[in-house]
Amino acid sequence: MPKIRYANMCHWKSIPYKKIDNFRQFYYEDNTNIAYYSDWDNILKYQSALGFDGIEIAPWDLADILPLFGSPENFTAFAKERGVEVIGMFHGAHASHAADHFDEAVRAGREAVDTIVRFGGTYMNTCPTQNYFGTGPLSREEVQQCAKVMNEIGRYATDHGVKLGLHNEFFCAINLPNHRELIESTDPRLVHYCIDTAQISILGEDLLTFYNDYHDRISTFHLKDTASANQPDSVRYAQDPEITDDGTRWFWEPGQGDLDFKGLYRLLKQHAFKGWMSIEYDGSPDMLASMAMTRYYLDNELRPIYD
């Protein structure tokens, strides 16, 4: 049994069909490859064929998935028939730093946990609050408020068999000056951490040092590469930096950037990490190609170090 199982964070844009029964006919309507990216049947089969046995969905997928499948349980069963299980869902804890937003932030977090449970998932990777621009810098009290919300949602998640993992983006109000302060202000029994390898590196953390320091808090990973580590405040605190004007990519498939993934895998082995690891392809123009490229890299470069 492998120590690490691999999933994909769902970055497919809206998939309009459940299953296309008239595939050839649909293809011939305009002879383009759109037919290959239009139904969950094939998307899940691509994942399964490439050895990604899990999928982590995003809350913005729900508006399309639920009408298409009728319920979270139906989607889970459909995915399972194709060899894929739903491991969890991302969650954005909007304005959790604001004391007057406590009830709403906790309510939304609990609802997300309930949704994950219905999908059969066990991970809720959670961005602790919104973008830095327009919000930061946070005061010490606001960071503590954020921790209070995470603890409260984390308690509910734990009680329902879900692991809340803090997930930081490089452009959020929780940023380099208060990133570790937030982690250390939360209850380790209730609040875990999902390392997004590229995001924390762009933020200014050293990936290997960070994992070493917090290995006992790590619930899972979002594995992706970057060639843009240690960005300055002027970039991280700018308005809407995630999608660049000129098409510059922050994120790359593992092995296509500069991060020391072999070093990370040696540490995973040292700390005997066990669990799911989601690969992320945000920014990729071709997610199927990215998946295949990643599978080759995992099998030939990383899994020989630790599997």
Partner: peptide
């Protein structure tokens, strides 16, 4: 803007 297809990520950038 909303449905999956190869290369659609470029539609989210100003240059496009």
């Amino acid at each position: 803007r909303h449905h999956q297809e190869p290369n659609r990520n470029r539609y989210e950038s100003r240059y496009f």
